[in-house]
């Protein structure tokens, strides 16, 4: 992990090379470095960090969504970058609100993001613009709602038993 100073240096380079307002925040917590970027410049920042940075982060190991309820903006997508040469990890995160959850896709940079972006879309409703095949992946295709959001109730899915099979909608579709 880059230490707190290293994180600031990375953030400084991103500000100089990509855009002044690309970096929203830097967080160093429990030995893990997180750089928060503006949602509109996610693609440019990851493109820069992947090859053009002095210390590149060529691989995306994990991409996951989070709901920070009650903080605003609520939703966030984390990009866990890895450098196999320096044995180092960097977390990039972008936060978006629930009213317009839109982020540019990074599938063109990291093909591994394909399924993982679909999962985040499925679970949190974050729309990745430019994704080649943005469909639900784990939930049924006709499912409504985004189950991993914190305001989605536990047990929100009615369970079909023999005693209630006629009360539940769509049971014989």
């Amino acid at each position: 992990m880059p230490d707190a100073t290293g994180l600031e240096l990375i953030a400084q380079r991103v500000r100089e090379q990509v855009a002044e307002d690309a970096v929203a925040d830097t967080i160093y917590h429990r030995g893990q470095a997180t750089i928060e970027v503006a949602p509109t410049s996610v693609h440019e920042v990851l493109d820069y960090l992947r090859d053009r940075d002095d210390e590149p982060w060529p691989y995306l190991m994990s991409l996951h969504g989070v709901d920070y309820l009650p903080d605003e903006p609520r939703l966030a997508v984390h990009y866990q970058l890895l450098s196999m040469e320096r044995l180092d990890r960097l977390n990039v995160r972008a936060r978006v609100g629930v009213d317009e959850p839109k982020l540019p896709t990074v599938v063109d940079l990291f093909p591994t993001a394909d399924h993982q972006e679909r999962e985040v879309f499925d679970m949190f409703g974050v729309v990745f613009e430019g994704h080649p095949d943005l469909r639900r992946i784990l939930m049924p295709e006709d499912y409504e709602g985004f189950p991993q959001r914190r305001d989605f109730p536990m047990g929100g899915e009615p369970v079909l038993f023999t005693y209630n099979e006629h009360e539940l909608p769509r049971w014989y579709d």
Binding site: R30, Q32, V66, H78, Q80, R89
Partner: peptide
Amino acid sequence: PGEAYAAIESPRGELGCY
């Protein structure tokens, strides 16, 4: 409060937990 990502080598590759 905080967030952490831990990765280990499972029989199938990197198993990470956030």
